[in-house]
């Protein structure tokens, strides 16, 4: 069911949540976390959909904060909060509150969110777009254990990446990193099989791809070898080559979801490396809510990397 509240406050929203839950006959809640999505009107639909799908795995209360832009100075002085409370079938496996803020209250969205957080449950903030400069210092970010940003959604990803390095605080994570998990697990599995020291490495990807950069930094940090970046036509990451004294370990994904794994002295095999949907990425993010130390390692990378852009 859906309850619309116009020009409202957090306590009225709380009442509506209780009312909604009673109406559908499930007064007990088994929700495990509060998910705060900070977005604009344009990206709200997709983000809510992804969060609802992810909530089937992690039943949660989703608070969507949409900051509305006022077009006239007069509107800007008018402060207003509208809310849309969805429970039951309209809201995945949990509850969703869509908050629209107008005027000054937009700068104080944390005052609306704080009373609506589930008692004693972890809080996750996700900025599908327009992440703050320093997520951990953002008023909403400061409420959360886990802060999810997405470098795919910015104009200059590599600049953003540098900003993430500088502002990193435990609990930060980025979907550009989440997208790498299948690649990373296949690389680790390949190395499990090769069982040999890696002496060189190269990551091939489209230009300015933040995932590729993170992957290169992670490989550099873990393997302690310089990692070459090769620019290709894409899409996204197209290949990773690890040089060993027996030959090269290559995962090659020229296009589409089908990749080839080659190990020295072994027949090459195909493997499926698909690009995952946002809801799957979010579900993965929510599986662990403690600090992702490997992300920090990947962000910082190693100094011994060299840049040799080459166009293919």
């Amino acid at each position: 069911m859906k309850i619309d509240l116009t020009d409202t406050t957090a306590s009225k929203i709380n009442k509506a949540l209780v009312q909604g839950r009673r109406a559908i006959g499930t007064p007990a809640v088994g929700m495990v976390l509060t998910m705060v999505i900070v977005t604009d009107e344009e990206n709200a639909y997709d983000a809510i959909k992804a969060a609802e799908e992810a909530s089937r795995e992690h039943p949660s209360r989703t608070l969507v904060v949409i900051k509305r832009h006022a077009r006239t100075p007069r509107d800007r002085t008018n402060s207003r909060l509208d809310a849309e409370v969805r429970v039951g079938a309209d809201s995945g496996a949990g509850e969703t509150v869509v908050l629209r803020t107008y005027g000054e209250v937009s700068d104080h969205a944390d005052s609306v969110v704080l009373p609506l957080l589930l008692p004693d449950a972890p809080v996750v903030v996700w900025w599908p777009v327009d992440a703050p400069e320093v997520p951990a210092k953002d008023p909403l970010g400061a409420l959360a254990q886990r802060r999810i940003t997405d470098m795919y959604a910015v104009e200059a990803p590599l600049t953003a990446l540098q900003a993430r390095v500088n502002s990193y605080a435990p609990g930060d994570t980025d979907l550009a990193w989440t997208r790498l998990t299948p690649w990373r697990s296949m690389l680790a599995a390949a190395l499990d099989q090769a069982r040999t020291k890696v002496i060189s490495a190269a990551v091939e990807s489209e230009a300015d791809n933040p995932s590729a950069e993170l992957l290169a930094r992670w490989l550099g940090a873990r393997l302690e070898v310089p990692v070459e970046r090769v620019v290709t036509a894409g899409p996204v990451v197209t290949a990773v080559r690890l040089g060993t004294k027996n030959g090269e370990i290559v995962i090659d994904r020229p296009e589409g979801p089908l990749a080839t794994l080659s190990l020295p002295g072994q027949p090459s095999r195909t493997l499926a490396l698909k690009v995952r949907s946002t809801s799957e990425l979010i579900a993965e993010e929510l599986r662990r809510l403690d600090a992702d130390e490997m992300y920090a390692v990947a962000l910082r990378g190693e100094s011994g990397t060299k840049e040799t852009p080459r166009h293919v």
Binding site: A188, L191, A194, T196, M294
Partner: peptide, 18 residues
């Protein structure tokens, strides 16, 4: 048909923190 495995080899790409 494989490369010579190294004894006591630890995969650097794996880490309990990961």
């Amino acid at each position: 048909n494989g490369p010579v495995p190294v004894a006591d080899w630890e995969n650097p790409l794996r880490d309990p923190r990961d």
